[in-house]
Amino acid sequence: MDQQEPSRTRTFSWEDPTIALRQGKNMSGFEYLKAIQAGELPPPPISPLLDMQITEVKEGRVTFALEPAEYQYNPLGSVHGGVLASLLDSSLGCAVQSLLPAGTGYTTIELKINYVRAVTHTTGMIYSEGTVIHMGGRIATAEARATDKAGKLYAHATTTCLIMRPERSKPSS
């Protein structure tokens, strides 16, 4: 029996990286992130969901910004820690992605966050700048800081990412 990929219903328009690769859009991680930042490719669905966007892409460093809002609140009356975790994880992972060649993926295998102070809708824009610390053949590490416009620290994080390089085809005998 021939198995097909299940179809998905889309509520956001975005450039699914697996489809883009199948269509020959062989972009490096840096090129892909720059295209999203420039609006040439739509952002992944998590970005409009949390109202966050890429503000800067450099090789090994990516910054995201998020405007805190009440719809992101937890029961304690501040922005849910998961929102900040998503912001930090995005800048961390994308910093790693910015150094990857075309056809190479990554996934977060560890994320450590220290929350320093609460974020509310009155905090103003929060920026998360992720920077690669180490880029190896299979493992990458990065660090990020979530700050406001004045540089006040709200959280900081580190990550370990698994690099998923394409398998090389073996010569036939």
Rank of each mutant, 00 (worst) to 15 (best):
N74A: 03
S86T: 12
M27V: 07
V83K: 03
Y32S: 03
V96R: 00
G81K: 09
A144Q: 00
G24C: 12
P42D: 12
M135F: 12
P48R: 10
L88N: 03
S28I: 07
F64A: 08
T141Q: 11
A95T: 11
H156F: 07
Y127S: 05
S78E: 10
P6R: 14
A95L: 11
S169E: 14
T123N: 07
T11M: 04
A146Q: 00
N114W: 13
M125N: 07
L33F: 07
T55L: 07
G136E: 11
R117I: 04
S90V: 05
M164G: 09
I113L: 10
T104M: 04
C94I: 01
S13P: 09
A144E: 00
Q72I: 05
N114V: 12
D51N: 13
G124I: 12
Y154H: 11
I133Y: 12
E40D: 13
Q53S: 09
I19K: 15
I163P: 00
A142F: 11
T63V: 02
Y71C: 07
K152F: 01
I113Y: 09
L100Q: 04
L111E: 01
T11E: 11
L49I: 07
A146I: 01
T141V: 09
S78H: 12
A35L: 06
T107G: 13
A140Y: 10
P17R: 09
S90I: 00
A102M: 02
M164S: 12
P75M: 08
I126R: 00
E31M: 06
H156W: 06
M164V: 15
G93Y: 04
V116A: 01
T122M: 10
G105D: 06
T104D: 06
P43W: 04
H134D: 15
H121I: 06
I139S: 07
E5T: 15
A35R: 09
A150H: 06
V96Q: 01
G29V: 00
S98M: 09
